[in-house]
C-alpha cells in the first residue's frame, strides 16, 4: 500500500465502524463529494484500503446561520463568509462495501475500520472498474437498514458503468441486473424498482 499523502483528499475521517465511516470536509465542490461516489480510506496502518460508497451528505446548521436565513436580500459576501470562512461542519457518511489489500479486492467488511483524521480520497475510474468486476458487494448495500439503499445502488452502478469503456457499459448493467434478480428473487416489487433505475445513461 502507498503510505504517502494522497494527491486529492476530499476530507478527513471523523469516526468509523467496520460497516461504515463518516468524514468531514469543507464546502462541497460541484463534483465532489457526490452521493454514490466510490471513496477509499487507509486502514491497518496503510496495509489496506477500505472502499465505500457515499451514502449521505449532511450540512449542519447553527444559530448564526439560522438567523441569516430570515434576512431579506442577503448579499453574496455574507453567504461567502458563512461558506468559506466559518467552520460549518459538513459530514459525509460512507457505507463500507469492501477493501483492498496487496492488490487483491475483497467485497466484504474489512478487518479494521480507518482511523480518525485519515485522508479520504475519491477512487480513480480504474479502481472502480476493478472493484466492481464482481457483484458480491450488492449484498452489503441491499441488506443495509438504511432506507436510501435502493437509491444508493443505482447511483453506484451508474458510477461503475461510467468507469468502463462505452461499449462495455450495457453488458455491465445487464450482469448487474441478473445479480439483483438472484438476490431479490423473493422481493419482486423491490427488484422491479431497482431494475427500472439501472438503465445505462449515455
Amino acid at each position: 500500500m502507498n503510505n504517502s499523502v494522497p494527491h486529492i483528499p476530499i476530507g478527513r475521517l471523523l469516526r468509523s465502524t467496520t460497516v461504515g465511516f463518516t468524514f468531514g470536509c469543507s464546502v462541497p465542490e460541484p463534483e465532489v463529494p457526490l452521493f454514490g461516489d466510490f471513496v477509499k480510506a487507509p486502514a491497518q496502518h496503510g496495509q489496506s484500503e477500505v472502499i465505500g460508497l457515499i451514502s449521505d451528505i449532511l450540512i449542519e446548521d447553527d444559530p448564526f446561520v439560522r438567523q441569516l436565513i430570515a434576512a431579506p436580500d442577503l448579499p453574496e459576501a455574507y453567504i461567502q463568509d458563512q461558506r468559506k470562512n466559518r467552520q460549518v461542519p459538513i459530514e459525509v457518511s460512507v457505507l463500507t462495501i469492501g477493501y483492498r489489500r496487496n492488490n487483491a479486492v475483497f467485497q466484504e467488511l474489512p478487518p479494521q475500520p480507518p482511523m480518525t483524521l485519515d485522508y479520504i480520497q475519491r477512487c480513480e475510474p480504474e479502481e472502480i472498474a476493478t472493484f466492481t468486476g464482481s457483484h458480491d458487494y450488492f449484498a452489503l448495500i441491499i441488506n443495509t437498514p438504511d432506507t436510501s439503499a435502493d437509491e444508493l445502488l443505482p447511483a453506484a452502478l451508474q458510477r461503475a458503468a461510467k468507469a468502463r469503456p462505452a461499449d462495455e457499459r450495457r453488458f455491465f448493467m445487464l450482469q448487474a441486473g441478473k445479480e439483483l434478480a438472484r438476490l431479490l428473487a423473493n422481493d419482486l416489487p423491490r427488484l422491479n424498482t431497482l431494475l427500472r433505475r439501472i438503465q445505462v445513461i449515455p
Binding site: E76, A77, R83, K84, N85
Partner: peptide, 14 residues
C-alpha cells in the same frame, strides 16, 4: 478580525 468587502461578492478576509 474581519475585513468585510461591502458591495462586492467576495468572501471577507478573516
Amino acid at each position: 478580525s474581519i475585513i468585510f468587502p461591502h458591495g462586492i461578492d467576495d468572501a471577507p478576509t478573516c
